[in-house]
């Protein structure tokens, strides 16, 4: 049985008399431990899709149909307490901009401890040790001192590692990462992707990676789904889709990619 099976999911936004279909009958599936990448440009609906998976859509957005079957249960039909057990525990998120995802007035230790308390069954006495262990798991050196730091004292790469630590605290089955490396320097991007790869191996984590960057997708994902204007236009194994794209939009995206081997300077 697939870990996540989405069928015909739709999300609409109402702006006065107009209705915009941000997500248009999207279907996808993800096995445990697999990595699926959703690729698209701005406005394709990929971020909306990510939020919709745990019913995080706020008005004027509305989820208008389909099923989200996670570990056998349709998340669109469960009650609030059940959903809360899933959200943040079995399914975690990492977002793009660590500068705005972390509370600037709390130390990262405080935020990490809060996550541990809320989403794990770790005993109160062990919370601090658990926090240190998590930071070490994401390769942050001098972890005990770092716990006392505020977000603005850390670099972008470090902040993103903290976000990842918070996301894996509950040992989730699925990690949804929305453009996790876009705001980072390219050398740091490599480090974060390496970290995600390692964590997937160690924790058996499934990854839903949202990105506009085909290079990131090539390196970090097993399968890929291409989104355009709310609908999935092509999907399949990463290598196959990138080498032999079928849909014109996929071909267009790939054509715009610049690799260092192509240079057209005179």
């Amino acid at each position: 049985m697939a870990l996540l099976d989405v069928q015909d999911l739709s999300v609409e936004f109402q702006h006065g008399p107009d209705t915009v279909k941000a997500v248009d009958r999207v279907s996808l599936s993800l096995e445990a431990g697999q990595a699926l990448a959703i690729v698209g440009e701005s406005g394709s609906g990929k971020s909306t899709l990510a939020l919709a998976l745990t019913r995080l859509i706020q008005p004027p957005g509305r989820m208008t149909g389909g099923r989200i079957v996670f570990q056998g249960t349709d998340l669109l039909r469960v009650d609030a307490p059940t959903l809360r057990r899933v959200r943040g525990r079995l399914i975690s998120y990492v977002f793009q901009d660590p500068a705005t995802s972390l509370n600037p007035v709390l130390t990262i230790g405080a935020q990490l401890r809060e996550t541990i308390r809320l989403h794990t069954t770790v005993a109160p006495d062990d919370v601090d040790a658990c926090a240190v262990a998590l930071l070490e798991q994401v390769d942050i050196a001098a972890a005990p001192e770092r716990l006392r730091a505020y977000p603005h004292e850390l670099s972008g790469g470090m902040r993103q590692r903290v976000m990842i630590a918070m996301a894996i605290a509950s040992k989730p089955a699925l990690l949804i990462a929305d453009e996790p490396t876009t705001a980072l320097d390219v050398t740091v991007q490599v480090q974060i992707l390496q970290l995600l790869q390692r964590l997937r191996r160690e924790l058996g984590l499934a990854l839903l990676l949202i990105s506009h960057d085909l290079l990131v997708v090539e390196q970090a994902a097993d399968r890929i789904a291409v989104m355009q204007r709310g609908a999935i236009v092509e999907s399949g194994p990463v290598a196959a889709v990138i080498q032999r794209p079928q849909h014109p939009y996929t071909q267009q995206l790939l054509a715009c990619r610049l690799t260092l081997s192509q240079r057209s300077s005179s």
Partner: peptide, 15 residues
């Protein structure tokens, strides 16, 4: 090497 997102790269340390 980082620009090609070569995940075998050993990129140590922080700026």
């Amino acid at each position: 090497r980082a620009s090609t997102l070569d995940l075998n790269l050993r990129a140590s340390g922080e700026r």
